[in-house]
């Protein structure tokens, strides 16, 4: 495994290099803000980000060494968590707002026109505020995102031969990224006790992000069922795959 021969510092450098570019909506949200207009903008953006996410995953050291089936499975399980963590990272400097893209920054009120969205919006704002309090560093952020990817599903494909090897690789990749996170935290100049506390606080936020992602999937599924917004291609495929895994 390539990640096994990299030092934590080298691994973080590679993960930072893998970061996707900023994604722009490239057009104004239609006014007035209606449920359909906002959802159309959010799903357009998600579609673009998903394509970048695949490139990102392929650049994370070790990912392409997994079986293709496991690569597919991991991404299908974690895509909304990865999108949401990216959203939180971008929104850290915009208290009370969510920066979906540099040209789409929404306040709670603007998001409230979408039925059922306020609850998710508030949870996203709360998690973002927590990252703000913790003064999340970029090195820590990229490690958390890679951890989400490799930790997205324990139940990978069959447990025989090549597939078993792939699952063992996922566990080793998780260990490598965890070591990288520990290294990133150690740079902050905290005491041993404070470093352990910070590590725990950061990792505990991942369970909130998983919860948020599940809420978001349910919400998007509901929007699809109500025909509020048409979903196409990759986003539709990722939503359907998540619903299938969930069921």
């Amino acid at each position: 495994l390539v990640s096994a021969v990299l030092s934590p510092q080298e691994l973080i450098s590679r993960i930072i290099e893998a970061e996707p570019p900023e994604t722009y909506l490239m057009k104004d949200v239609k006014r007035p803000f209606t449920e359909a207009n906002v959802m159309m903008s959010l799903t357009n953006l998600a579609d673009k980000e998903l394509v970048h996410m695949i490139t990102w995953a392929k650049k994370i050291p070790g990912f392409v060494e997994l079986s293709l089936l496991d690569q597919v499975h991991l991404l299908e399980c974690c895509w909304l968590e990865v999108l949401m963590l990216g959203l939180m990272w971008r929104s850290v400097d915009h208290p009370g707002k969510l920066m979906f893209s540099p040209d789409l920054i929404l306040s709670r009120d603007e998001g409230s026109c979408v039925q059922g969205f306020v609850e998710i919006f508030d949870m996203l704002l709360a998690a973002t505020a927590r990252f703000r309090e913790l003064q999340l560093q970029k090195e820590e952020y990229v490690c958390l995102k890679a951890l989400i990817l490799f930790n997205s599903n324990l139940c990978l494909s069959s447990s025989e031969g090549e597939e078993l090897q792939s699952r063992t690789k996922v566990m080793r990749l998780l260990d490598s990224v965890t070591d990288a996170l520990v290294w990133a935290i150690s740079k902050t100049g905290l005491s041993f006790q404070q470093r352990s506390t910070r590590q725990a606080r950061l990792l505990m936020l991942l369970s909130h992000i998983r919860h948020l992602s599940n809420k978001g999937i349910d919400h998007l599924h509901c929007m699809k069922m109500r025909n509020v917004v048409p979903l196409y291609d990759l986003l539709l495929e990722m939503l359907d795959a998540h619903i299938m895994h969930g069921s």
């Binding site: 673009k48 394509v51 970048h52 695949i54 490139t55 392929k58 293709l68 089936l69 690569q71 597919v72 991404l75 299908e76 291609d233 990759l234 495929e237 990722m238 795959a241």
Partner: peptide, 24 residues
């Protein structure tokens, strides 16, 4: 790998050695 899996866009993008951004 099932036929259904092979037809997935995600599957194709992961397998392609060129950037998925170029394909999108």
């Amino acid at each position: 790998t099932s036929l259904k899996e092979k037809h997935k866009i995600l599957h194709r993008l992961l397998q392609n050695s060129t950037s998925p951004v170029d394909l999108a």
